[in-house]
Structure formats: structure tokens, C-alpha cells
Computed example of a mutant assay.
Amino acid sequence: MHDIPYLLEVPRLRVQNANAISSPHTWGFPAMSAFVGLMQALERCLHAEGIELKLDSVGVICHRHEPQVSRSGHTHAFHLTRNPVGKKGDTAAIVEEGRTHLEITLVFAAGGAAADAHKQGSGPDIEEAIADILPTLRIAGGSIQSPLNRRGNTPRPQLVSVAETEEGQAKQNRWLLRRWLPGFALLSRDDLLHDHHAELQKTDPQTDLLDAWLDLSRFNWVARHEDLQGGDEGKVHWERRGPAQGWIVPIPVGYGALGQLHEAGAVEGARDESTPFRFVESLYSIGEWKSPHRLQSPSELLWYVDNQEEDGLYRLRNDYARIID
């Protein structure tokens, strides 16, 4: 974390009715783009108050996850609402919306003159300003409520100076990572997707990345016969096929362009007529939920924007796989 001067910790936020449909093919937890959007909105609100705090990346630790669904065996159905009748008294259609309640801790990589001034005891109170601004924002459409710790107290955001020495950082990392227990951090595992793709191509060279992603996104079971003496096949055992490591999940990581970039105002019905417009589709990868105490540094759970506009890619990245290698 030598290149991260400060960490901004926002502990135990409660989010009500956040969007649980993260993409056309995934559900359960908001996409990381929702948390990056919160980071950018928070930074702009601080700048509007004259606080020049720079937020570069964000990580999320989930402590509680309560999707609003009904369960029948392996089937989950969202709790939906029927809208009021139309102007003519007709029954309005049901629009499927997935909602979830969350308790999360957010960690931001921070910097800027405001952070330096705050640590020197001058300038505005950044932590107090953030505590006032956050309830006015939303996370994935969900309302942010006052955080609570185990004792029922309201914890405040905290701006932490990263230790300068390796020994100091190691001690600080252990202290921070254990503060975020119990919970799980969402990490990027692009490496597992590419490794599994290479493994599947050994038996079927026509396998593409989509096949590998779908294969990793489900539970695969195969039958194994127990060989008896004399070569006879005995009892059948069912074994799970695929990577045995980690709690891996399919996740959206951004958007890919479907066509050229249109000039601002050229596309009718666009939400913002002053910004260039482009049609896109979701990009997918593999993520892993991991307990913070199994990480070496808070930098491993941070996500940041890595757009490649010339290639039509607008995506997020997390360096956990690269750091552990």
C-alpha cells in the first residue's frame, strides 16, 4: 500500500432495498459499478463543499445480506409490488424488481490536499462531512441508513494514514482486516476464468470464454464408478467437477461497446443530452467472496476504473489475483 497515502473506512452502513439484479444474467448482490458510482458521487459532493478529497478506488465487505425473496426448495422468487391502476382504471403491469437489505463496510483509497490538512489538524472535518453526506446518497438505488455496531452505537467514518514502513504496514493491515470481521469481501478472479477456459480447451478446442464462464457459474456433478477386483465396476459415486477452491460467483465487471460513439444529443431519448452516447452490453467475469482476515493488505480488495475507450471497454478491475501471484 506504499502508493496509497490514506484509507477512508466507512463502517457498518445499512442499505435498505438495494437493487439485487446486478445484470441480465446475475442476481443477489449489487454490481461493483454501483459502489464506484457512490464513490464518484461522494467525491463530487465533498468538492461542492470545498473539500478537495480524492477517492481513487473502493472495496466492499458484506456483513449481512438479506435478499427480499420467497423460497420454495431451490427456487427463489422476488417479492414484487403491483403498481396503482392507470388513468383509465386499467391494471398496471408488474415490473420485476429485485431488492435486498445489506450491512456493509466500505473502504476507499483516498488522497489530496484535504486529507493532508485534516491529518495536520487544519481544514474542515472530513469525517463529519462524509457522515452528513452519505444518508443523502443511494447505493444501487437503496437507501443508506445510520450504521450501527454490535453495541448499538453509531460508528463514524475514519480517515486512516497508511504506515510508511513495511513493519508498520504489516501491523496496521492486521488491525484493519480483523476490524472488518465477520464479513466477506468481493474480489476479482479473472485468472480462474482464463485457467478454466484453457483446461476445457484441452478436451474441446471449440470452447470459448462464455462456455468457461457458464461452466464455472454452476455446480457440475459427474458419476464415478468404484473399481472392484477383477475390473468389475462397483458402486457409483457422484463427485463435483470444477475448481475446488474458494466461494466463486459470476459477476458483471462493466460494459462493452456495441457500436460507435455518438455525439451528444444525437440519440433521441438519451438521459443526458450534453454527454456523448454509446450503446453497450454487460461484461462478465468471475468473482470470489473471501474473509478479510485471509487477505494480506486492504489494497487487495479495492476496485478501480480501467476504461479502454479505443477498444470500447468500460470496466472495473481488482488486483487481488495479480498481487497474490
Rank of each mutant, 00 (worst) to 15 (best):
T105W: 04
K88Q: 06
V107L: 03
R99C: 05
G112T: 03
H101L: 01
G86C: 08
K88I: 09
G89M: 13
K119D: 10
V85K: 12
G111C: 05
A117D: 11
G86N: 06
H101K: 04
G98D: 00
V107I: 07
A93N: 15
E103A: 03
H79Y: 11
T81W: 12
I94P: 13
G111Y: 00
E96M: 05
R82N: 11
E103I: 07
H118C: 11
A115G: 05
A115K: 07
G89I: 08
R82P: 01
G86P: 00
A114T: 14
I104F: 06
V85Y: 04
A110Y: 12
L106G: 02
G98Q: 00
T105L: 00
K87M: 10
I104R: 14
T81R: 15
G89Y: 12
N83M: 15
A93L: 14
G89T: 12
E96L: 15
L106E: 02
V107K: 01
V85R: 13
K87Y: 13
E97P: 03
A109G: 05
G112R: 08
E96N: 13
A115M: 06
A93R: 15
G98V: 00
H118E: 01
V95S: 12
E97G: 06
L80I: 08
L80N: 11
A115C: 10
G89S: 13
I104A: 07
G89D: 10
